[in-house]
Write a protein that binds this DNA or RNA. Structure first.
Lengths: 342, 342
DNA sequence: TACGCCCCTGAAAGCGCTTTCAGAAAGCGC
DNA sequence: GCGCTTTCTGAAAGCGCTTTCAGGGGCGTA
């Protein structure tokens, strides 16, 4: 698209018979005689002029672009968050560059590098956060110019040492609350369907749940923690394995709703019932879960708001240059996928 | 982010004690004495140099960026398509600029303009297509530089006159097939939950369904076509209205799965049963619908592939400069949300 | 009518990179 | 060892825009 096919400011200036400088000023709303301004605007309109964003950015003009990195836009969790980001972006006339890493840390770094090359105004990392200091160092190095500046990065997830503004879902507390809720409902035998443990999000949810059980003196056998990819099918497979090994759990906690959905399907496919034979709980409260049968008990996160707040955070100056942390969500929503044990 | 905080090629060249030109060549893999190349690469590494994508684009170098415009990323339909786009983008080292219009045609045009300003390699319009020639003219004007070039635009949806490469879901044929399937199951009284009629996608689905009924001599009363926003809640509200007005339909066809999901909820909330009291069918086959109870009968679209093919289309040269049209999907998948009428 | 001040316009520099164009260095044959 | 060709390197010219810096015109004041 770099062919001679684009109208330039010079073309407009010539058509309006003014200098380049004047044309630029007219287009950018600076003081120009109304008469000339009109001529320029008209010429621009007639020629269907679109300023070259690259030239503008290069010359130091405004360039309204933000970068967002997530695992997978097609996952309802990220889609919902992205929805919030998009809303704020639209309100601020920002163009969003979205990248899916498909959970590959290398790709995450590569994308951040590309966003840096694009000189994105702000960078948002959603659900990043790997339990890997080596990786975090690399990310930090990549993010350097942004970190030095005035806080134009925000993350949604916990990072071990990265000093950036954070919107933190209450993963640990939420999972703990879920454990408490299930204990109160009389459950004593649990199983957990977990995702890749290198993700801090997973670690926190699993950790919070376990800790609370331990506090209550309830054991969680290693065999009852089954790991799988962070997807519907991952949940299905994990639950199937659990069933295969003849688990005695009465309550299964999946660290993400999408996994819980798969788990429910697996239970049903065995001819068992949720919640009569086994209670299933999830995490996230993605929109669809209230329309399932039975509707899913889960830990609610205000997903759209997560995205909104994160972008707002990245967009507002941070004069004190201190890491701002916004904790959100974490309430247990009990629906019909979990039953009281009598 | 335009402060003096970024390392430039000049810095690298100086550090490596070579000229700018040599540094550029070394970094871009052109012929340079191995000895010098290594020095440059090392210097670049040490300084954490990231080329300025704007400068590069401006100077005519490669700039790997594509623009995607959709209604709302958080909608499962678009999310799934976007997933496909992301996959192909990742394979091609492309950065994706994603914009949500929230179904506002003005905003759609504004975004295309921004993408044009960014000199995006390719532009993808997903589910665009308004039944509004005035709008289409404006869009065409905005897209001009891309249309003149060698086919770097693709759309997923039908446009009336826009001459661009198209990945076309079989909306009309799919809806017709659904009508046939329902007729074969014995239904004779129908209702349709429809979206904004200005969307060609909606028009085609509604049109295909109606035409097939008419062909079979089955009437569809105007009162039995209820319109609502293209969302879960829109479907819920529409179905509620239908129920309120005492519809006698035995089968309700929603022009989108998300609406069908809302419709099912509305039916249940009335204490009625899907499919015993009323059959519900949708369109799209978004991933979640097979996990609903009952699983949703729908017209299947290979959503992810839609996105993949569209981007591939936009990325491949089109020497003959003819509009390429790829028709996809449209098979009826009968699940348990629809019942035979005896 | 003449002088000074202020605002507006135009020329030009530069943002960071790629690429052309010569010139320098190196390689070859005789 | 000389002169030619063949590489490879460095200087410089843009890419399209914003912005500084003077200069010029219009106006107010005496």
């Amino acid at each position: 698209m770099q062919a001679r096919t684009h109208v330039t400011l010079e073309d407009v200036a010539r058509a309006a018979d003014v200098s380049l400088a004047t044309a630029s000023r007219a287009l950018n709303g600076m003081r120009v005689t109304p008469h000339l301004r009109e001529r320029v605007l008209l010429a621009a309109e007639r020629l269907a002029y679109t300023p070259n964003a690259h030239a503008r950015a290069l010359a130091g003009g405004a360039h309204r672009t933000v970068g967002v990195v997530c695992h997978d836009v097609s996952d309802p969790y990220f889609a919902a968050i992205a929805g919030g980001v998009m809303r704020v972006a639209a309100d601020n006339d920002l163009l969003v560059m979205l990248a899916s890493t498909f959970s590959d840390p290398e790709r995450e770094i590569a994308y951040v590098s590309m966003l840096r090359a694009e000189r994105a105004h702000a960078i948002l990392l959603i659900g990043s956060g790997f339990e890997d200091l080596h990786w975090e160092r690399a990310l930090e190095a990549e993010l350097k110019p942004y970190l030095d500046g005035r806080g134009r990065v925000a993350v949604i997830s916990r990072h071990r040492s990265l000093r950036v503004d954070t919107v933190l879902p209450e993963n640990r507390a939420g999972a703990a609350a879920m454990a408490r809720a299930m204990l109160e409902m009389g459950h004593r035998r649990f199983a957990v369907l977990t995702g890749p443990p290198v993700l801090t999000t997973v670690a926190d949810r699993l950790g919070g749940f376990r800790a609370e059980l331990r506090k209550a003196g309830v054991k969680l056998a290693a065999a009852d923690i089954v790991e799988g990819p962070f997807t519907r099918d991952g949940g299905y497979a994990a639950m199937t394995r659990l069933l295969d090994q003849g688990t005695r759990a009465t309550c299964v906690f999946a660290v993400a709703d999408v996994m819980a959905i798969g788990a429910c399907a697996a239970v049903r496919d065995r001819g068992l019932s949720v919640p009569d034979d086994v209670s299933v709980a999830g995490f996230d409260d993605i929109p669809i879960v209230r329309d399932l049968t039975p509707p899913l008990t889960t830990v609610a996160l205000p997903l759209q708001q997560l995205g909104e707040r994160a972008l707002e955070l990245a967009l507002t100056e941070n004069p004190e240059r201190r890491r701002r942390v916004l904790r959100m969500g974490g309430e247990v929503v009990v629906r019909a996928s979990t039953a009281k044990l009598t």
